[in-house]
Computed example of a mutant assay.
Amino acid sequence: MSSTPPQGPVTDASVSVAAPDSDEPRSLRIEDWLTVIVMAALALITFANVLVRYFTSSSFAWTEEISVFLMIVLALVAGSAAVARDQHIRIEYFAEGGSAARRKRLAQLGAVAVALLFGLIAVLSVRVVWDDYRFGETSPGIGVPQWWYSIWLPIISALIAARAVGLLIRRSRETPASEDSAGDAQP
């Protein structure tokens, strides 16, 4: 089998698809690896529970509790990666319309809103962790201290807030003129 190179001129659009995004932080590997690890753990736990249930007609009691915890961690870690990559939910009609200066201000406003929201969640969830610790709450499934689970909410929320501040800094450094020329190159 021989493969022939594509015929015709190579456009900037086809090259930019394969090129890595220079605006993306290199430290996103943390979120990417955490996502892989959590997904692998979820798959292994679920597979082990299915095997045990199939062969013994009973199941591990702890798998549901751990799986729910891991799914929450997965959602928060993915949210952090989405904020850092500027892929969070927005209304494209408003976010991509108008002048480059308007788009820049809206991007900055979105980053500030995300940073404030997750900063507030981080601060308020510390109280939840403290209450879990102070009152000795235990998890319903396996009876471990509840704060083992709840401690991750303020930590990952602070990470998301930091990612939003990083996005705000990156968006603030951009000049509207460079955004217009970058937007013209796209089909």
Rank of each mutant, 00 (worst) to 15 (best):
D23M: 07
I169Y: 10
T11L: 11
Y133C: 01
S2K: 14
S27C: 06
G110Q: 09
A82Y: 05
R173V: 03
A158L: 14
T175R: 15
A13N: 10
F69A: 07
T11V: 08
G97I: 05
D12K: 07
I121T: 02
G110Y: 04
R103K: 08
S157W: 01
G183K: 13
R26I: 09
S16G: 04
A19L: 08
R127H: 11
I37A: 15
N49C: 02
A161D: 01
A107E: 11
S58P: 00
L44C: 13
A84C: 05
R173E: 10
V165A: 06
R90N: 08
V15Q: 10
S58E: 12
S157K: 09
E64M: 07
E31Q: 09
V165W: 06
H88W: 09
P5W: 07
T63R: 00
W147P: 00
R127Y: 12
L116W: 03
R53E: 06
W152R: 01
I155F: 08
A162W: 13
P6Y: 02
V123T: 10
V52D: 06
G79L: 11
Q146I: 03
A41T: 15
A19T: 15
R127G: 09
S125R: 05
M71Q: 10
A41D: 03
R85V: 06
D131Y: 05
P5D: 13
E96A: 09
I142T: 10
S67N: 07
A115R: 09
S99D: 10
S58N: 14
V165M: 06
S14H: 05
A162C: 06
S181A: 15
W130Q: 12
N49P: 03
S80G: 15
D184M: 14
A111M: 04
I91R: 11
E24A: 15
L74H: 07
I91C: 04
A115D: 01
I156K: 04
L44G: 12
D12A: 11
L42K: 02
G143L: 00
L159I: 11
I89V: 12
V123C: 09
I121Y: 00
I37E: 06
S157I: 08
M39Y: 05
I169L: 13
M71N: 08
A113S: 13
W33T: 13
R103S: 00
S139M: 03
A41V: 07
T35M: 12
I89H: 03
W147V: 00
A81L: 08
L167N: 08
R127A: 11
A111W: 04
V144P: 00
A48M: 12
W130D: 09
G8W: 04
E31P: 01
R53H: 02
L116M: 12
R90V: 06
E92N: 12
P6W: 02
A81Q: 11
G166A: 11
S57E: 14
P5N: 14
A75G: 11
A162G: 08
